[in-house]
Structure formats: structure tokens, C-alpha cells
């Protein structure tokens, strides 16, 4: 009798605690979602109604704000540029990175450990430090104001993490697989393409995701290297469109929406994979 009483008391207490936890989590979720919802709502208003009641729902939906931001704000161009830059960076850094990782993890040479440390040091160097020398150098090479001029540093900064993660994956492949490939008469290049690469798919997903997200959102390098409106990437176009021109707020909100919508869509579709992938990458880093 006494025993059951305490159990039900315990149960009630834990139920209250669970409810409190949920209330806390929901409030927090609201803090995360409301600002973004506010942007959505405001981006569909016009300025005159915005100033009167910034938090009210729009009376007439103004799609024109989006059209303005897309064309006059150069966000359409910018999105294309961002996509080109991120895709090329992704591919090149994966190819170069996995090749180097294979050499470090599988090939036998004296300096492989040293090479690994060399790349690892790169992870600690903030891009700010090399911004000025790169700016000077790329100016002389006529790479400033071209997309190539930002792709090259992006690849370089994606390399260390790519190599580090891929080394982990390649080292995890059982030696027997390579030995049997060797008996089958595979060359070392075939071993890389036929044995190592197919077994490191997860590694590619993780590193690819990290590099794409980081470069899609990168502002500083792109801002320093790109002068021409036609070459700007998304974060730069957004910054430079919203900053000085904000006489029409609703159009600015539409611009912000355009900038984050692709990421949100991708995120909603693949949230679990993205979160797990990025976390796996960060854990390893």
C-alpha cells in the first residue's frame, strides 16, 4: 500500500517535470521560429502598412517585393554565382582532398605523418590572417573580381577538414580488401578509384555537406575579392543590397527571404541527414 503510493507520487512528479520540459522546449522553439516567420510576413507587406503595425498580418500580398529583390538586388545572379562557386569548390576539394587522404592513409612513405600535421595546422589558421596577402597576390594575377579568385581560397580552406575526415575513412577500410585487389592485379590508381572511393561514401557526404554549407554562407572573402555586382555571391549581394538601400524595408525582407529559402527547403527535406552529417564532421574536426 505504502509502496504503491510512493510510486504514483513519483510518477506524478516525473509527469510534471516532463510537462515543464516540454513547455520550455516549445517556448525555445518559438524564439527560433518567430523571427523567421516575421521576415516571411513582412516581406509580403508594403512599407506604408509596415510602419503602422510591424507585427500585423499583411492586408494585400505584395509579391512585387520579391521580384524587385530578385532583379534589382541582383539576388538572382548572386544565387547562380553562389551555386557555381560552391559546386566547383565541392568537387575540386573532394577530388584533391581524397587523393591526398589516400596517400596519407594508405600509401607508404616516410613523410606521411608530417604531411598530415601540415594539413592539420591549416585548420587553426583563420582566413582573416591571409586575406591581405591573398588580396595582393590575386590582384597581381588578375584573379580578383573573378569567381576563380574566391573558389581557390574556398578549396584551400575546405581541404584540411576533407583530408582529415577522409583519412579516417580510408584507414578504416580493412587491409584484406586492398590485398585481394592487389592479387587481382589492380594498380594503385585502380585501388583508389575501385576500392577506396566506393567505401568512403559517408565520408564524402559529410565533407561535402560541410564544405557546401560553409562556402554558401561565406561573406568576408567574397566581399574582399569581388567588386562587380554581376560577380557577387549571395551573402555579399544581400549585405550590400540591404545595407545602404534600406529605404524600402519590405523589399529588404524579401531579399533576406530569398537568401535563406534554398537552405531552408534543403534543410526541411533532409534535416536529419544534414544535422547528423555536420555534427559528425564537427566531432571529427
Amino acid at each position: 500500500m505504502n509502496n504503491t503510493m510512493t510510486i504514483s507520487k513519483e510518477k506524478r512528479r516525473s509527469r510534471i517535470i516532463t510537462t515543464l520540459i516540454y513547455i520550455f522546449l516549445v517556448i525555445l522553439a518559438i524564439i527560433y521560429i518567430v523571427p523567421i516567420l516575421w521576415v516571411v510576413i513582412t516581406s509580403l507587406k508594403n512599407d506604408s502598412t509596415l510602419m503602422l503595425s510591424p507585427w500585423a498580418m499583411p492586408e494585400h500580398i505584395e509579391w512585387g517585393n520579391y521580384a524587385f529583390a530578385w532583379t534589382k538586388g541582383h539576388l538572382g545572379t548572386a544565387m547562380l554565382n553562389s551555386f557555381i562557386v560552391c559546386s566547383i569548390t565541392l568537387i575540386v576539394s573532394m577530388v584533391f582532398g581524397s587523393m591526398a587522404a589516400f596517400a596519407i592513409a594508405r600509401l607508404r612513405w616516410k613523410l606521411s605523418k608530417l604531411a598530415m600535421y601540415y594539413f592539420l595546422i591549416g585548420m587553426m589558421i583563420p582566413i582573416h590572417t591571409i586575406l591581405i596577402p591573398l588580396f595582393v597576390q590575386f590582384s597581381q594575377w588578375h584573379l580578383s573580381n573573378t569567381l576563380t579568385g574566391i573558389i581557390v581560397p574556398y578549396i584551400t580552406f575546405s581541404l584540411p577538414i576533407t583530408i582529415y575526415i577522409m583519412v579516417g575513412f580510408f584507414e578504416g577500410i580493412p587491409n584484406e580488401l586492398f590485398e585481394s585487389a592487389c592479387i587481382d592485379g589492380c594498380s594503385v590508381y585502380k585501388m583508389f578509384t575501385m576500392v577506396a572511393l566506393p567505401l568512403a561514401k559517408t565520408g564524402f557526404m559529410v565533407t561535402g555537406l560541410m564544405s557546401f554549407v560553409a562556402n554558401w554562407n561565406e561573406l568576408l572573402v567574397a566581399m574582399v575579392f569581388i567588386s562587380n555586382d554581376a560577380k557577387k555571391t549571395l551573402p555579399v549581394s544581400l549585405t550590400k543590397f540591404v545595407g545602404p538601400y534600406h529605404t524600402n524595408y519590405c523589399q529588404m525582407f524579401a531579399a533576406i527571404m530569398i537568401a535563406i529559402i534554398p537552405t531552408i527547403i534543403a534543410y526541411v527535406a533532409f534535416a536529419n541527414q544534414i544535422v547528423e552529417g555536420l555534427t559528425a564532421g564537427a566531432v571529427k574536426g
Binding site: I88, H142, T146, L147, T148, N228
Partner: peptide, 17 residues
């Protein structure tokens, strides 16, 4: 990279380079 990257040709507007 400078010559071959498709980026330059893909960028829609005038290229100062």
C-alpha cells in the same frame, strides 16, 4: 584555373577582366 574555370563564362554580366 584562371583560364579554364567555367565560372567566368557562366557569370551572366560583363566581365571586367
Amino acid at each position: 584555373c584562371g583560364g579554364a574555370a567555367p565560372a567566368d563564362t557562366a557569370a551572366p554580366a560583363a566581365d571586367t577582366g
